[in-house]
Design a protein around this nucleic acid. Sequence first.
DNA 1: ATGACAATCAGAGATTGA
Length: 259
Amino acid sequence: MKIASFNINGIKARTPALLEWLKEAKPDVVLLQEIKSVDEAFPREIFEELGYNVETHGQKSFNGVAILSKYPLREIERGLPGDKSDEQARWIEATICLPHEIKICCLYLPNGNPLPGPKYDYKLEWMDRLYHRAKELISSEKPSLMAGDFNIIPQAEDAASPKNWVNDALFKLESRSKFRKILNLGFLDAFRACNDGPGHYSFWDYQAGAWNKNDGIRIDHFLLSPNCSDLLTDCKIDSDIRGREKPSDHVPIWIKLNV
DNA sequence: ATGACAATCAGAGATTGA
């Protein structure tokens, strides 16, 4: 089974590019971030015609997450628990039902810039809540994964120019430590389990010719619970997508599970 | 330190992103 994550930077602007990639990559499940659309405006029929079940958690103009799945989705939850006043659409989870169940969580972690400031505080607070949900997932002892745009550069080798990011919310020790704390619960960075070394990126800024200079960062991740990690056979980033017409600034990352 | 680029909403230019 192939599960992908893709920050599409607007479903309205990205539907053609998304369809082209879907038909090539043929993922069974796709986790989308930054749909930048309310639920009613999401073009669900286009994806249903391709055989996907569609669940969205949208918001006007900004944020918004969605799950496309060829398998039925159950136990759908919208919004990261822990703060009822949080109105930003950054989390949707569901259980897919194969012979055995897998809990799939799609997230769009706050950027956090500028720093210091309320946006950075929100990022750190959101990561504290993410830690609590991650702990619950581990405690359940069921196969689970969290994937999406984490807005975290885990290590220096995950940036082409790490010096440019030292004071950025994506690379600040404080936010990276919170990411590491989640890994230390027992979650596996699937990409690093399958790939070594520098030069692997999932985001290139639209500005300053970042793609042409390969000045990228790796900020889109798949974190797998231990019994989900046992099923992992491959993880790759479809970086060539960034060079196409009207691309997102992110590219898809996917895993294969032996189920 | 700033802007470079793109998407959104709105119908110009501000806001957001990373």
